[in-house]
Amino acid sequence: MSLQELLQQIANGLVVGSVYGLIALGYTMVYGIVRLINFAQGGLYEVGAYLGVFFFTLMGKFGLQYPIPAVLITLVISMTLTGALAFVVERVAYRPLRNAPLLAPLVSSLAMFFLLISVVQVVTGAEPLTYPSVLSPAPLHLGPIVLSPTSLIIFFAAILLMVGMQQFVRRTKVGKAMRATAANREAAALMGINTTRIVSLTFVLGGAMGAAAGILYGVNYGTVTYDMGEFGGLVAFTAAVMGGIGNVPGALVGGLTVGVLSSFASTFLPNQWNEAIVFAILILILAIRPQGILGERVAERA
């Protein structure tokens, strides 16, 4: 492989990885606060992607031609709706089981995931849907690398969202309450923080990030399928673990790493083995370094 191909693969991997990072953000924030793998995150990502198709198409019908406003409006509406859905998920599948043994919320969030992707499957008839191409397909040449303008925008949009979320968690008062809840829920409650509201908010933000990831994925690849939530959810979970689950900047690092790794895997191996390789990487990472690259900051309590 030449240097140019290598750089190209890295660039492709970074674009995909930024999307994984966004989904991973949802896993990692929820995990940090409630110590639960929210399987439903993969479903929320998929629902977000499909809502995106719906609103893009709707705006096309109303003659909204300008791509950037169209993307922005779609993002805002889908993120809001998916966030609301995540709120319902928390209310139904997590909150009643707060004090149950670990297996119960795990199974209920799994059931929720399955319910979401089944609903998508039923509503869309299991057919892949096409995203309207919003930007000119003319490729951009950045030195030796060729990228579509869409991928560039996706990459920067994903990074922007992730950095924004990190700043939100780090700087705002609500973010501070989230961190306090993650560190010690009882103590946070004693300090007058409404931890129930914080848990809800975390689910909502995680769902919104998932929806954004779904739309960016759709815009980048042009199609969405009803089983995208399963694969995307798994890969993003790997990313969250790699970055150190519960660690917000780690989600970005993990996402980009998994993106580049899977991009290399698809270069060196026949295409149909792509998924199997990603699953194998996932198992290896979880087995060898379950605390992630950056470590499990949040859970560090004696």
């Binding site: 670990l102 297996l103 795990l106 799994l110 798994l234 699953f279 198992i283 979880l286 087995a287 379950p290």
Partner: peptide
Amino acid sequence: PTLRVRGDYLAIMTLGFGGI
């Protein structure tokens, strides 16, 4: 390799194994 990790991680790893 998988049974050393926490219960929720195990769930994900077995999911990956089934996928493979």
